[in-house]
Design a protein around this nucleic acid. Structure first.
Lengths: 234, 234
DNA sequence: TCTAATAAATGAATGGCATTCATTTAGTGG
DNA sequence: CCACTAAATGAATGCCATTCATTTATTAGA
């Protein structure tokens, strides 16, 4: 057991044994505050933009802010918290303006493309978003409000709005991954002979010469969802 | 520079300077081979089943096989390789049998539900699959072949088969995350008053009393995709 | 003006991780 | 029987997020 540094009781006991001698709290405000959540978010985005998500480490983040890594933990509980801040910032970039002015179909279309485009650049966030309670992400919640209101105005039965949004979102997240897939992802290699249908279908698509196959699939799926959900309106 | 252990040339040079003195290869086969990819895959699945993906470390995997961690690297290039093996094994569990016997609609429906159910338990694999060249995953390729053949037989134009499958897959992966989301994910908390449409929609869905909201959304989206894609058949 | 309280920042540790590599082990074809 | 080899070992390496006792700088209130 090497050098146990916490043998004796901590001298900074915050809330341990809170009953002892009333609640005393009369003090001043602290130092200049070099760090805050907005600054951390901005620095994280800068870092991600330059070196990708592999480059986003707490050490690198601290270094980019001229601060010790441990200092970050005064403003953020964990690295996951940093990712949450980034996620919420990005969600604010999703374009929901069409819900105010355009018909439901085109509003959904613009929103979905914008949503996919934003997170295609940030796929490592998707596992975080998918499980994230909206309470922790005000901008995300704001987006849901705008979209829900648009669905309601378009005549959607209220009890199906959330399910429809969830389905669209699921499709959007999955499609965001597609965008990042390598071009040769469907190259069946030496298995080509044993997979004639699939290999033929891949070749047939390639012969079309689309520059972005992911866009074709996204468009196909999105239009099917829009058509199918549009029929639910009353 | 502490203790540089690789100063002198390696004694095990495999392919360095391959021209030197012809190709000589006359030797015996090695020892008993405690380890192989099938065993590693099985052990990884056992570990994941017991402790989840956090429990899947190279050290834990080695320990479960009574072997040193470094021994794994004789059979696998990286941890990502292990995840690939697991992924391919799981894909083989996806039910594609309906494509042999049932009409296209119900075959797609069964396949999609099965696919989602398998990977809902293994969401950490989704980022791996989404970018995985099919060459590296024979079972995955086999699944694509069966599905492609089914689409072709159903009258799908060949050049749209891959896009349709990709769109369905995207929806399936995104929906797999949904399954794992906490029940209170849409609780707007103290922001409820400022998000009346969304909060109302959430309450309205909750009032329906579905035991699995993720299933409702998945069904809604899947039926829309099946209906939309079904119309493409000739 | 002094002092007590405080939030923020520091620096040194901790434990875990995947991966590398020189070396050893144990079978086998010639 | 021996040269060769694949597989296994164990000890590093470097990176990572996170913790914690301590120091610093600020300010409210007596």
């Amino acid at each position: 057991m090497p050098a146990s540094p916490a043998d004796s009781r901590s001298t900074t006991e915050r809330e341990t044994i809170p009953k002892t001698g009333a609640v005393r709290r009369r003090a001043g405000r602290p130092a200049a505050a070099v760090l805050d959540q907005a600054g951390i978010t901005a620095a994280a985005l800068r870092l991600i933009g330059k070196n990708g998500y592999d480059g986003l480490t707490m050490a690198a983040l601290a270094r980019s802010l001229n601060v010790a890594p441990s200092a970050l933990y005064n403003h953020v509980e964990s690295k996951r918290d940093v990712l949450l801040l980034v996620e919420d910032h990005l969600t604010a970039l999703v374009d929901v303006t069409a819900f105010a002015a355009e018909p439901w179909e085109s509003a959904v279309r613009k929103w979905a493309w914008s949503y996919r485009d934003v997170f295609a650049e940030h796929t490592p966030l998707i596992p975080v978003i998918a499980v994230l309670p909206v309470t922790d992400a005000p901008q995300t919640l704001a987006m849901y409000e705008t979209v829900s209101a648009g669905f309601g105005r378009a005549g959607f039965p209220e009890e199906r709005i959330v399910s429809a949004i969830v389905a669209l979102e699921s499709f959007i997240f999955g499609s965001a991954y597609d965008v990042t897939a390598p071009a040769d992802i469907f190259d069946s290699g030496n298995m080509a002979e044993s997979t004639p249908s699939f290999t033929g279908a891949v070749r047939s698509l390639a012969a079309q010469g689309h520059e972005k196959p992911a866009d074709v699939a996204f468009s196909l799926g999105l239009e099917a969802l829009i058509a199918g959900f549009g029929a639910l309106r009353v």
